[in-house]
């Protein structure tokens, strides 16, 4: 009788269950109607099964988003777990869609599902990639903009994981400020 190691048949469970959402900009519909839940997963193997099955971000049409959020959190400011939160935002220039977008987004996903932020991973709600003609954006959403320790730890680890040069900074903005901004930029609460 051959003994098979459990490694061979047991999937590797993640700390959290995650939902991947897709947003397609159809102006005839409401914002919420354009948002669709693609799938949920809670193992390493199922994460890859989903990731390998869908289009990479750089192939999406302008106006589309992918959002990965912990199960039970909707990818919008209004969700109870997001409304006091904010995001570490990275704005990419047009050239970066070809050179950096897909690897930055995959790295972001790996940070989330792998719980890369140590004891502060519980403060992470999700991440969003926006495909836009004027410049794509990737953001990690956290639960509480007031928690300096959690927010800055997450920002430092995230910047390091993306391999961004020291001189390039990313900023953290509260969703409340983003929602009420008057111009095109939102003030940063933190910068790393």
């Amino acid at each position: 009788l051959e003994i098979v190691s459990p490694e061979a048949y047991i999937k590797h469970p993640l700390q959290n269950s995650w939902s991947l959402w897709f947003f397609k900009n159809d102006k005839s519909k409401t914002w919420q109607a354009n948002l669709r839940l693609i799938s949920k997963f809670d193992t390493v193997e199922d994460f890859w099964a989903l990731y390998n099955h869908i289009q990479v971000s750089s192939n999406l049409m302008s106006g589309c988003d992918y959002s990965l959020f912990k199960d039970g959190i909707e990818p919008m400011w209004e969700d109870e777990r997001n409304k006091r939160g904010g995001r570490w935002l990275m704005t990419l220039n047009k050239q970066m869609r070809r050179s950096d977008l897909d690897r930055f987004w995959l790295e972001t996903l790996l940070c989330l599902v792998g719980e890369a932020f140590d004891d502060y991973s519980d403060h992470v709600c999700g991440a969003v990639v926006n495909i836009r003609t004027k410049g794509d954006k990737i953001a990690v959403w956290t639960a509480d903009y007031d928690n300096r320790e959690a927010v800055t730890h997450i920002g430092r680890v995230y910047k390091e994981r993306l391999g961004l040069p020291t001189k390039m900074t990313i900023g953290y903005q509260s969703h409340a400020d983003t929602a009420t901004k008057s111009g095109s930029t939102t003030k940063n609460k933190f910068v790393v």
Binding site: L14, E45, N52, G114, E115, S121
Partner: peptide
Amino acid sequence: GKRQYNRDFLLCFQFKPACI
């Protein structure tokens, strides 16, 4: 403890089919 997986560990599963 938390189930943390580093990037190399996660990446080595990308093209490894689950047996069942």
